[in-house]
Design a protein around this nucleic acid. Sequence first.
RNA 1: GGACGGUUAGCUCAGUUGGUUAGAGCGCCUCGUUUACACCGAGGAGGUCGAAGGUUCGAAUCCUUCACCGUCCACCA
Length: 857
Amino acid sequence: MSLPAKYNPQNHEDVIYQQWEDAGAFNPDTSTGTETFTVILPPPNATGTLHLGHAMYVVQDIMVRHARMSGKKTLWLPGTDHAAIATQNRVEKDLAKRTPPLTRYDLGREKFVQQVEEFVEQSRDTIRHQLRTMGFSLDWSRETFTLDAPRQAAVTEMFIRMYHDGLIYRGNRIVNWCPRCQSTLADDEVEYREEITKFYYFKYGPVVIGTARPETKFLDKTIVVHPDDPRYTTLHNTTLTVEWMNGPVQAQVIADATADKDFGSGAMTITPAHSKEDFALAQKYHLPIVQIIDEAGNFTEAAGTFAGQSASASRQTIVDMLASKGLVDHIDDHYTHNLSVCYRCGTAIQPLLSDQWFVHVDQPLPAQHQFAGKTLKQVACEVVNNGSIQIIPDRFTSTYFHWMDSLHNWCISRQLWYGHRIPAWYKDGAITVQVDSPGQGWKQDSDVLDTWFSSGMWTFSTLGWPRQTEDLTTFHPTQVLETGYDILFFWVARMILMTTYALGEIPFEKVYLHGLVRDKLGRKMSKSLGNGIDPLDMSAKYGTDALRMALIAGTTPGNDAKLYEEKIASYRNFITKIWNVGRYILANTNLVGTGLSLSDQWILSRLNRLVMNVNHDFETYQYSLAAERTYDFLWHELADWYVEIKKFEPNPGLLQQVLEVILKVLHPFVPFVTEVLWQEFKPGSMLITAAWPIADAAQIDPVVEQQFVAVQDSVIQLRNLRNQYNISYQTVLSVYSQQLPDSATKTMIEQLAKVSITDQLPIGQLTHLTNSRFDFGVELSVVIDVVAERQRLQKEIIALEKNLASFEAKLNNPDFLAHAPNDLIENTKKLRDEKLTVLAENKSNLSLLPAALQPPK
RNA sequence: GGACGGUUAGCUCAGUUGGUUAGAGCGCCUCGUUUACACCGAGGAGGUCGAAGGUUCGAAUCCUUCACCGUCCACCA
């Protein structure tokens, strides 16, 4: 059976994945390991398809495959997130495209939710397929969904517990309202967009006030000035009658440091129902709070004649009206400010007053709790602070603390139809929180929960909580959470909050944050830019293994990585290389000899060194380094040198041994091609039979490595000489050496450089090879081009002299001799002497050159 | 406004606790139809490590300041 010269991934990947799945190889229940290794997949949103960001899950697959091969009972648990806002928006968008366009209200809640569920079912199928295509070794038997029945039960239970512990409350607060989504948003779901707009200055009694949003100012009757602002000292705590939008109003003046003396006129009026800061002031001074704009973005009755009209559309009318009253002082046309917008749809946020559910992050936990007396916030800080949870890279730790410090109570109710219904029931002003309806006439809260509430429970709800399942005791806490740094706050922080509360333990030991995948120009990949790369396209074109390598190599934790097709193509070449090395070795196993030659000892030393280094890389989460190291070994040591040497040297059966180990080391990165090759010479699936290799330190021999480097150096020198003088490999070059190397080494150099080494002094003059550890000479008569040879020697001499100068400078420096470690000094001396010898030879060659040969005519 | 990250070869990036002559891949140039591989092989050119100071026998690496690019947080009516 002979393998084709090119590896075609499409012929193997699906088959191999199916084999793995059929064998139950991803299910930890089949493992006899005692130590567990658990990773819960960050659930992709059920909004359609996976993108390259999700392809970064490959980091988890590498961790998980490595752990599994190392004998650990390994669980990687898949699932999807219902992503309330995102999914609902997606379906609403589809509805709007229909003829005639539909809204969710046309369908009604029940039918609409049904539509969303159908869409989600379809998405989840696509996602399952994509995750398999990427080769991810997920335990599909434990697949979950944030909105399936067990998770529903868990979320409801959590809400009820937190409510009874006083950690969830209902309150009337300013919230971020998205008029398009018709829902509240958490603080961190609000994004800011810089915008140049008009800034209006109005005459308001004796002061001038500034605003970017005149339409909110109808009922303003409180002026705030800074206590130390000399311009307004006389006004403090007075009440004035001022002419305003709907006629004269009674306005009181408050002195409070919130007012910025240097901004605008230094005086402002406040709008308590539509600004967080103003709301806080209103509470502080017990001012009336009246809503002017409603959930739809229209004026309420409070706006008088404007009631029912769109607030944003009425801005100009209102300004005109004030102008006609002579109340416009001036207008600044180039005011830059940050407009707050919805992170989902980009619509401008309308802050407004509303009854909502909140998680209380500053409420001490009850007496019976593990962390009794501490607040959620404190616990979440503590577990990171004391090292129970480690964030990689470390610098995100301070970001985490900073965010935690400024965390306010978390608004968790969303006015959506799709999601976890809030288990609160109302009747005649009474409220009760429980799973089922208390009885006749009780109405359930119509809101659903923020999607991060359920994903915050992800490490334990997926394992069966609140039931004390075997999975929960076996696999929790998990070892690693691997995700993008962009959701450190959204998700990671909330998982820590909720898990420490629910279980009294951490959700994971390490948080490994990967960077974002960007295009070649460093831009975020997005549909609107059209610069996205579909992982499935790349997988089909270059193979999954190549895509995986491209995603890992050159990426370090927390730093963004660029991905482009050429990079994937170059790793496709690497996969072909693996294939061909494997193919060659498997076809040439019969040339058996005995005893270990220099090259055999060398490859064993290098191989064991590689395993040792890769182990260290895994321990320190440096997957990119591990991948590159292995790449380099396979291509530039095993293939370029060892395999080439074994074409003429007796083979003591090492080739296959080396292949076996290198396939294992490669497997977490490129599971498919390694599995295919494995099955060519081993019974059974690699995934089940291959154990992670152990480095044998006794095989690592620096002396052997050094000896081999000398051979490599000489061969490269000789090849270089050939290239320089255009001497074809058909011509066997005669090389003189006063002392012949041992016969195996002699053969190696002769074969690899296509030369013949002799100790018979030739008739003509010799040119010595720079740096050659074997002190080879080549007869000058074969060097045809005297001018070129002169140039070559001169160049070498200049380089050598430069080197020499730097060594001499060090060695002549008494401080260096006094402070530097001894071996460094010795090494420097040795190098200096070597350079000196070679330099002398080169100079002598140069001086002989014109005498030995006539210059060309 | 506050903080963080980046700046190393034409491009994309490595560079472990300061220590021999700063590396790789791609690209480029020269050569090669040597039966594992042209998705290949051999060789080569190319960098005063963003700038300026400082610490040190010794700095890409540590410290200070600055410049440019990027990101996050906060947000002023």
